[in-house]
C-alpha cells in the first residue's frame, strides 16, 4: 500500500524534474544556484497559474482555448483603467472581474448553444483578443504599443520577493493549495470528476451539472485574469497581445501533468509539476543558447513521448506490478 504513490504519474514527473535539473547543472554549473532556479521561475509562473484552473475545465470534459486572449484582455483593461486615473489596485480588481466575466461568457454560451467547448472558445478567443486590440486602439496606446509607467508597488507584485522567495512563486503556492483543496478534498471537486467521466450519471445522481461546468469556465477565466495581471506587473507594461502565445503551453502543461484530454482524470499536483518541468526545460535550453521557438522541438517531443509512455508501457508496467502483487498475496493465503 505504501509504495502506491511510487508508480503514480506525478512521481515520474518529479523524477523527470530532478533528471532535468541534474543534466542542465552538469552542462552549466551556474544553473544550479538556488536563487537562480527560484527567480527563473518568474519567467513561466503565468503558465502555471493559468494551467491550474484549466485542469478543472479539462477534467470536466471541456476545454478553454481562449485563455491566452483573456490574459491580453485583462492586461489591457488594467492598463487602460489605470491610465484613466483609476487607482492601480482598483484596476487590478476590475481586471479580475473582467477575467471572471470572460469565463462566465464562455460558460453561458457553451451551455446555451450546446456547441462543443472547443468551437465556442475558439470564437471567443478571436472575440477577446479583438476586443483587447479595440480597447488598446481606442485609448491612447494605439495598436500594439503598451501602456507602461506603473507605480512601483504594482511592479513589485511580479518582480519583488518575500522571505527570499519571489512573489510569483508565492502566488503559485497559494493557487496550488487552494485548488488542491477545491478539487481533491471537497465535494465540488468530486462532482467535477463525475461530470467529466459521465455527465448523464452525474445528472441522474442529482448534481447540478450545468452549474458545475459553468463554474469551471468561470475559474478558468479567473486564472487567465490573474496571469494577465501577473504578466503586466512582471513586464511593467500592459499590452493587448500579452499571453497570445500562451494557449498551447498551458494545454501542454495540463496534458503532460496527466490530465486526460477527454476528461475524468487528472490532478492539480501533476499540472503544477508539469508546468515547472516545461518551464525549466525552456529556461535551460535558452541558457544553452537556443531561442524559445527552437526549444519547442524538445518540448513537443517530450509531450508526445511522455504521453506515449503513459499510454502504453507505463500502464503495462503498473499492471505487471499489480499482478505480481496479487499473485504473491494469493500464494500467501
Amino acid at each position: 500500500m505504501k509504495i502506491k504513490w511510487f508508480y503514480r504519474w506525478e512521481f515520474f514527473l518529479l523524477l523527470l524534474f530532478i533528471v532535468e535539473i541534474a543534466i542542465f547543472g552538469w552542462i552549466s554549473p551556474g544553473f544550479l544556484h538556488v536563487n537562480n532556479l527560484l527567480f527563473s521561475m518568474n519567467d513561466f509562473m503565468f503558465i502555471s497559474i493559468a494551467a491550474i484552473p484549466m485542469t478543472l475545465v479539462i477534467i470536466s470534459g471541456g476545454i478553454d482555448v481562449s485563455i491566452g486572449s483573456i490574459m491580453g484582455l485583462c492586461s489591457i483593461i488594467l492598463g487602460v483603467s489605470w491610465s484613466h486615473g483609476v487607482n492601480v489596485w482598483l484596476a487590478v480588481i476590475i481586471a479580475i472581474f473582467c477575467g471572471l466575466a470572460a469565463g462566465l461568457f464562455n460558460g453561458l454560451i457553451i451551455l446555451y448553444s450546446r456547441v462543443q467547448p472547443l468551437v465556442v472558445t475558439l470564437g471567443s478567443m478571436f472575440l477577446f483578443s479583438g476586443l483587447a486590440l479595440v480597447i488598446s486602439g481606442g485609448s491612447k496606446a494605439s495598436g500594439y504599443e503598451g501602456i507602461s509607467g506603473f507605480p512601483d508597488a504594482f511592479v513589485q507584485l511580479g518582480n519583488g520577493s518575500f522571505l527570499g522567495v519571489p512573489n510569483p512563486v508565492w502566488f503559485l503556492f497559494v493557487m496550488t493549495a487552494a485548488f488542491c483543496t477545491l478539487l481533491h478534498f471537497m465535494k465540488y471537486g468530486r462532482s467535477v470528476y463525475l461530470v467529466g467521466i459521465n455527465s448523464k450519471a452525474a445528472l441522474y445522481s442529482g448534481l447540478r451539472i450545468k452549474w458545475i461546468s459553468l463554474s469551471t469556465y468561470i475559474l478558468s477565466g479567473l486564472g487567465g485574469g490573474l496571469s494577465g495581471i501577473l504578466l503586466t506587473s512582471y513586464f511593467s507594461s500592459a499590452r493587448a497581445d500579452l499571453g497570445s502565445e500562451a494557449v498551447l503551453p498551458v494545454i501542454t502543461a495540463v496534458v503532460l501533468g496527466g490530465t486526460s484530454i477527454i476528461g475524468g482524470r487528472g490532478s492539480i499536483a501533476g499540472t503544477v509539476l508539469a508546468s515547472i518541468v516545461i518551464g525549466f526545460m525552456q529556461y535551460g535550453l535558452q541558457a544553452i543558447g537556443l531561442t524559445s521557438e527552437q526549444a519547442s522541438i524538445v518540448i513537443g517531443a517530450m509531450l508526445i513521448l511522455s504521453v506515449m509512455a503513459r499510454q502504453s508501457s507505463f500502464q503495462k508496467v503498473m499492471q505487471w506490478f499489480r499482478q505480481r502483487k496479487s499473485n504473491s498475496s494469493d500464494l500467501m493465503y
Binding site: E293, Q294, I297, G300, A301, I304, M308
Partner: peptide
C-alpha cells in the same frame, strides 16, 4: 501513425508536432 498505432490522442500528437515542426523550421 502516432494517433492510430501508438494511441496518442490526436490533439496531443499534433500539438507536439506543431512545436517540433515550427522549431525545426527556425533551425
Amino acid at each position: 501513425l502516432g494517433v492510430s498505432f501508438f494511441r496518442i490522442p490526436s490533439i496531443i500528437m499534433t500539438l507536439g508536432t506543431l512545436g517540433i515542426v515550427r522549431g525545426y523550421m527556425l533551425f
